[in-house]
Amino acid sequence: MAEALLCTRGLSRRFGAVQATDHVDLDVAAGTLHAVIGPNGAGKSTLIGQLAGEIATDAGRIVFAGDDITRLPVHRRAHAGLARSFQITSIFSGFSVRENVALAVQAHAGHSFRFWRRADRERGLNERAEAMLARVNLGDEAQRLAGELAHGQKRQLELAMALAGNPRLLLLDEPMAGMGAEEGARLAELLRSLRDEVTILLVEHDMDVVFSLSDQITVLIFGRVVITGTPEAIRASDEVQAAYLGEHAAC
């Protein structure tokens, strides 16, 4: 098997009585799209939070591109090449769409202790921002206030921000949550096209999307990895059918 870009061993996190992640072992191979599925409350967002560094880890370790990043603060992980989107849209509503992305570009264009030049006239930042917006099909909305975008467009904007720093691994927490069918289909298409550029760890509820896009799928239940395998292997697994997919189909 190819060298894993991200690997976790025994990753755990407890909230009071809830063991949100429970000795999670995960291997995400470079160049793949790896999905994590599981019912609500399974610990998917907690896992993403731990990988991104926002949620502290109780036990276990995270190795990214050969380095142990378990204790690294969020911003340093971002510079190591981890980018994320949030389950609940997280943008700068008071900024223009372009400035949202320009800020993301700025995060990876040297330090920002720059006090003199107008940031909105920095061509390097603006050009890359516009390229990212075009990449997620938001090129026409650059001048609008981010808060005014439709929900689906905000999710696209988040993606553009995540891509701006040229990440090695994209952590996407339910990027399609709350989207209409058409918006969702467009985003799925976008994810498909991104697959060749960047390694993706995808948490998503839409099973059609997950099964059609993923190279590997990990099923998480009560914080524990039940199984990891190819979409075919997951579909064939009785365990998953019983524990999750069957139940999922019923509701």
């Binding site: 911003h75 980018a83 943008i91 700068f92 800020l103 006090f115 107008r118």
Partner: peptide, 30 residues
Amino acid sequence: LLRRIVAARFGRVLRGAAENERRMAALGFP
């Protein structure tokens, strides 16, 4: 001087942090 600073990269970071600190960290800003 302050007007220059708020319009420069530094000011943008300051405004960004005021609006969404969590996002700023995830983008890579200390």
